[in-house]
Design a protein around this nucleic acid. Structure first.
Lengths: 144, 144
DNA sequence: ATAATGTCTATTAAATCTATAGACATATTA
DNA sequence: TAATATGTCTATAGATTTAATAGACATTAT
């Protein structure tokens, strides 16, 4: 399961993607509209800013806005930033690889294959899921 | 990521699948061979027993053994028993469904679709990954 | 009767996740 | 340049979950 932090991040980013190139949005507004504790959201947005996904403007009239294009931010990236590894086992993780403690020998482990498959399929979908697509989907769904 | 509990469970089950129909194996042996804290393993095996995946024999010469056939136990079932939901969001979980707190309206949520896709692909692979297949794979790999 | 096992309940220790507080820095605008 | 509205940063507290352990008890084989 994704952490709350990660879910909050996704919702906040979608919110900002809907307002792409419309100037900075303050934390307060995002927090209220998306029902996210403001202080917690602050920390999340700061991380996304440090990762160059968002940028911010300080002072009066300031706030956060998408730095990358909505087509260039996907769920794979967001989840990795917030929760770390996406794989179900460290020994099949691309970005957070660690050998399995329990495994005697990775080469002959019959379990890994399944989780390699899961990882690949998962990444394929999450990589394709950009903010742009999510916003588009949202609009399509609300018209029905 | 899977919990340690879940990883221990998988390794213990594979160990028992390798010894299917060869009589009970004691906890002590599994714990030592798979490097699992014995007391922790006890609790895990007990749960798997209550779920009718394993059965046990008490007293001298007792131990645990697979109750179901190795072809009938898959990773999907094991993970659900140990860690609960497999989906990345509660609102796309088949067995542990809960509405998303953050979501205003599930019907028009553009995020769900991606995670529904991930869930389906993940379940497909994990359901196909039976203990029998894992043992078979293990043998094939160690011959190379 | 004895010894070797699994069963059960309780508890503790450690790690992680979630949330909050408050001082500080910066930018705008009157 | 003062006042105000923002984001930035560090620290910490509280809650929850995970991992591990202890010990009394029940059962079975010999």
């Amino acid at each position: 399961m994704l952490s709350k932090k990660c879910k909050y991040a996704i919702h906040a980013l979608v919110y900002l993607a809907e307002r792409y190139q419309q100037g900075p949005v303050h934390i307060q507004e995002i927090a209220e509209r998306q029902h996210i504790p403001k202080k917690f959201l602050e920390a999340i947005l700061l991380e996304l800013r440090n990762a160059k996904v968002l940028n911010s403007k300080k002072g009066k009239g300031g706030g956060y806005y998408l730095f990358k294009k909505p087509e260039e931010v996907n769920l794979m990236e967001i989840i990795r930033l917030m929760d770390g590894a996406i794989a179900m086992l460290p020994c099949v993780s691309l970005n957070y690889y660690e050998p399995c403690e329990e495994c005697r020998d990775e080469k002959t482990c019959g379990i890994r294959d399944s989780f390699l498959g899961v990882r690949d399929e998962t990444l394929k979908i999450l990589r394709e899921s950009t903010l742009a697509k999510i916003v588009k989907r949202e609009k399509a769904l609300s018209k029905k």
